[in-house]
């Protein structure tokens, strides 16, 4: 039984990071209808920025994460303005190709700048916490708390504030949003800023657990796409729940069957859900 709880906890921890990556992706897709393949690269760049801030500038880890989120939010705004806004309103395939190109440019840019080697964060809060026969490091616990906080803040912002409402308004009916006086370009910048900050947070928080390297963004990117398809494209609760489900399936699958097949379980779950509910768990049927 203790294996079960241990793997459940591991799955939730992993799943909360997946959820964070998926949230940014689903926000950008749901509002701007851009499949942002570069999202995984923002995750990777965010991890690098935090890494350098901690190692070179000896910043406190959480301050580094915060700063990295701000810097990546800025980069997200630039990316939206320079690359995605010009293809807004053109055929969807254009945004698709722009996003793919960005993925390749950013990933290879990182190799060019920093080399392909793996980098390790200095150990951080690695004392163990044990309860009910489960043990996790304090760092993982803090990471999960930080992730949960970010998700709550985002949820509150999007659901309850006026600015959050304008974001949802543009997602639900762009022309109607224009007519009530919303500037959709400003909403586009904001959505990219938010999504990129979340990706940077996820990459930075996971950095000390795994390693930092230029290709670290690919797997979470693919998983995040699986999650938002599983949860329903554009749905925020879908991304949160989808992330947790995927993390738990991976955790349990790795614990009971084999860690080698964990991706199989994740994508298998996606296929099963879609065959039963094609629009995803929280998906809205196309009008």
């Amino acid at each position: 039984m203790s294996i079960f709880f241990q793997q459940l906890i591991n799955g939730i921890i992993l799943g909360s990071v997946y959820a964070l990556v998926a949230l940014g992706l689903t926000l950008i897709y749901g509002i701007l209808h851009v499949p942002n393949f570069a999202h995984g690269m923002i995750y990777m760049l965010g991890a690098y920025v935090s890494y350098f801030l901690v190692v070179e500038y000896h910043l406190n880890f959480f301050a580094a994460v915060g700063l990295s989120m701000i810097i990546m939010a800025g980069l997200g705004v630039v990316i939206e303005r320079v690359f995605f806004r010009p293809v807004q309103g053109a055929s969807r395939i254009n945004a698709f190709i722009v996003a793919l190109s960005l993925l390749i440019i950013l990933e290879n840019g990182a190799v060019l700048l920093w080399g392909a080697e793996f980098r390790k964060f200095p150990p951080l809060l690695d004392q163990q916490v044990s309860f009910w026969g489960i043990s996790i490091t304090l760092q993982r616990l803090l990471m999960t708390v930080a992730t949960a906080l970010l998700i709550l803040v985002l949820h509150f912002f999007v659901q309850k504030t006026l600015v959050g409402r304008t974001i949802r308004a543009v997602g639900q009916d762009r022309e109607a949003a224009l007519l009530i006086g919303v500037n959709p370009n400003r909403v586009g910048s904001m959505v990219f800023a938010l999504g990129s900050a979340l990706a940077a947070a996820a990459g930075s928080l996971i950095g000390p657990i795994f390693l930092v390297h230029p290709h670290m963004g690919m797997a979470p990117l693919l998983k995040a796409f699986a999650i938002i398809i599983l949860g329903g494209m554009g749905s925020i609760p879908g991304a949160i729940l989808g992330g947790l489900i995927l993390g738990v399936i991976e955790g349990l699958g790795a614990g009971y069957i084999s860690a080698a097949y964990k991706d199989l379980f994740a994508f298998g779950a996606m296929v099963v859900v879609l065959s039963v509910k094609p629009s995803g768990l929280f998906g809205r049927e196309e009008k």
Partner: peptide, 11 residues
């Protein structure tokens, strides 16, 4: 008030 109402349906 546009044609087809154009409300924000999920709000």
């Amino acid at each position: 008030c546009p044609e087809g109402r154009r409300l924000f349906p999920y709000m």
